[in-house]
Simulated scan of single mutants.
Amino acid sequence: MRIVFIGASHWHLDLYLLPLLEVPGAELVGIADPDPAVVERLTARLGCAGDTDFRTLCRDVKPDFVFALGRHIDMPDEARFLIEEGIPFALEKPCGLNQADVAAIAELAERKGAFAAVPLVFRNGDFSEHLKALSAEGDLSYATFRFIAGFPARYRQAGCGWMLDPALSGGGSTINLAIHFFDLAHALLGDGVRVLGATMSNHAWRERIEDYSVVTFERDGALCVVETGYLYPAPTSNFDMHYAFRFPRNYVIAHDPITVESLEDDGSSRSWSSVTTNVPHYRTFVFDVLERVRTGRPPLANLSDMVPIMRLVDQAYAKAGPLPLAAMSAL
């Protein structure tokens, strides 16, 4: 399979690229990015074709599959081109700035019968499968997700300063980090889930995007709280995290990135190993999505799956309102 990356300056590049280099029968044939310095650096590193125009590159090298990254504002145009060209692809989250962006390309992909995967990578792990099994036994009553990442300055250091401009990224930790947990909230609570309330702030770093966010979801009295931020003094891919769930017969806790505990109502408990952060699942995603293309199976998650998630994202930003004026005045 001939593989191309577009929007290759995205900080997630190596999460996809390094596993790809291990996939039997996969060949990296090109990278594209609007920044010519990025193209020069990556083509020298990888020994493949490169171009600042992804359309030109794809038409020249004719890939079998594309990993589409880049700025959030550019993602719908990338998707439209790949759909119209009939090239299977995976589009990085959030696939656009809002629900309208994503709904339009999802409708086009469905109408054209496109293979349009989205890396909602928790779906590639056993933790989300365990939560679904518990939900099948009875309704969830409460859930909390706390997922705090490193400082926003890391995006500038990675050459992705656009992430701190809401006109280009759509926002901060909510549209970036919380997407995974909005997906889990939707899976646990169902289509009737809505955003009950949201609070966001840029007080810690005085950037134009939120560096802290708390969103509460509700469905028929069941509640789910998603807390994200850019506050944790740790390297990339390390998180301050804790999840908890109340199901009818047990209380489930994810204590850390590898340990889950279930406390039963009868007082017994059990613990097991499970990957509860997103980062390790990208490798699984890369192998899985390419195998699905090769064998003619649909993706595990597609653009249509992103539409209800982006509906919740839009609701969260609407509920939160503008960032605090006191913080904005310091910009």
Rank of each mutant, 00 (worst) to 15 (best):
M310D: 02
V39T: 08
L120N: 12
D240E: 14
M200W: 00
Q315P: 05
L231K: 05
Y212C: 03
G170R: 02
P34S: 09
L42I: 05
N202M: 05
G138N: 03
L17W: 04
F245T: 07
Y243N: 03
I105A: 05
G197L: 04
P119G: 06
A185Y: 00
S135H: 07
P298L: 08
G7W: 00
K112W: 03
G170M: 00
I3S: 09
Y212T: 03
A234F: 08
A149D: 14
R219P: 00
E291C: 13
W272D: 12
H72R: 12
G221C: 07
S237L: 12
S268G: 13
Y212K: 09
F145R: 05
A116P: 13
G321V: 10
D51P: 05
I209V: 15
H180P: 01
R41K: 12
F239R: 02
W162Y: 15
P119T: 00
Y282V: 08
P322Q: 11
V286E: 10
F245C: 08
S329W: 07
F287R: 15
S274E: 13
I309M: 11
D266L: 05
L177V: 07
S173K: 07
D64C: 02
C95K: 00
G47Y: 09
P36D: 11
P257N: 08
D256P: 11
R45A: 14
N302F: 05
Y16Q: 04
Y230D: 05
S141M: 12
G267C: 11
N124V: 01
P308T: 10
A326D: 14
R71V: 15
H186D: 10
Y212E: 13
L231P: 08
S268D: 11
M328R: 15
E207S: 12
G113R: 07
G161Y: 12
V275Y: 02
L15G: 11
F287N: 09
W11M: 02
H72Q: 08
I105R: 01
D220T: 06
F115G: 01
A26K: 04
A79H: 03
V121A: 01
N250F: 00
A68V: 06
M310H: 10
H130V: 11
P119V: 04
V214G: 03
V66T: 08
R219D: 00
T277Q: 03
Y16T: 06
V252Y: 02
A222R: 08
V214F: 00
L290E: 07
L184E: 02
R154M: 13
D211Y: 05
Q99A: 15
V307W: 09
A301P: 03
D60H: 02
P36E: 11
V29W: 03
I175V: 15
D288Q: 13
T216A: 12
Y251H: 14
I105V: 15
S271N: 12
L290H: 02
D265A: 14
D74H: 12
N98V: 12
L300P: 00
D256K: 08
A254V: 14
E227G: 01
V29E: 06
A204W: 07
S269K: 12
A301M: 08
A68F: 04
Y282C: 01
E27T: 15
F127V: 13
C48D: 02
I6A: 06
L91Y: 09
P152N: 05
D126V: 10
R208Y: 05
L312C: 10
D191P: 10
A158M: 14
V252W: 02
A136P: 08
S135R: 15
S269L: 07
V214K: 13
E137T: 14
R292C: 14
R41V: 11
A185P: 01
T199I: 07
